Computed example of a mutant assay.
Amino acid sequence: MDEQSVRAALEHYIRFSAAGDEDRASEIYCEDAVLEFPQSGERFEGVANFREWRREYPAEVELEIVRVRGRDDFWVVEIRARYDGGAWLFGPALYEFRGDLVARETIYVGEAWEPPEWRARWRAAP
Rank of each mutant, 00 (worst) to 15 (best):
R80N: 14
G110E: 12
D23I: 02
E22D: 07
Y108K: 12
L89T: 13
A103I: 00
A103L: 07
G46N: 01
E42D: 02
E62G: 10
R80L: 12
D2I: 10
A18L: 07
V76G: 14
E96M: 09
I14N: 01
E60F: 14
E78A: 15
F74T: 09
E42W: 03
Y95V: 02
V102K: 09
D84C: 07
R51Q: 04
I28R: 12
F50C: 01
E3N: 14
A59F: 04
R69Y: 04
L63D: 11
R54M: 06
V61G: 11
A9G: 06
W113K: 14
D32T: 02
G110P: 09
P38M: 13
Y108H: 15
E105Q: 13
R67N: 14
W53C: 10
D100H: 03
F97R: 11
T106R: 10
R119A: 13
G91A: 15
E52S: 10
P115E: 08
G41E: 01
E52T: 05
M1E: 05
V109W: 15
G110W: 12
A59M: 08
W88D: 12
G85V: 06
E114P: 07
A124S: 06
M1I: 12
R98W: 01
F16Y: 06
E64P: 03
R67H: 14
V6M: 12
G99S: 02
D73T: 10
E60A: 15
I65F: 05
E96Y: 05
E3C: 14
L63E: 09
E105Y: 08
E105G: 11
A25W: 00
F74W: 09
S17E: 01
D72W: 08
A8G: 00
A120Q: 09
L35P: 05
V61P: 07
G91Y: 13
D72C: 02
D100C: 01
Q39F: 11
R24D: 00
R71M: 11
E96H: 12
G41D: 06
P38G: 10
F90L: 13
E3W: 13
E56F: 06
A125D: 02
S26D: 05
L101A: 12
F74D: 03
E36A: 08
Q39L: 13
D32Q: 05
F44L: 03
E111T: 05
F90S: 11
F50V: 00
G99D: 00
E111Q: 12
I28M: 11
G46K: 06
S17V: 01
V76H: 14
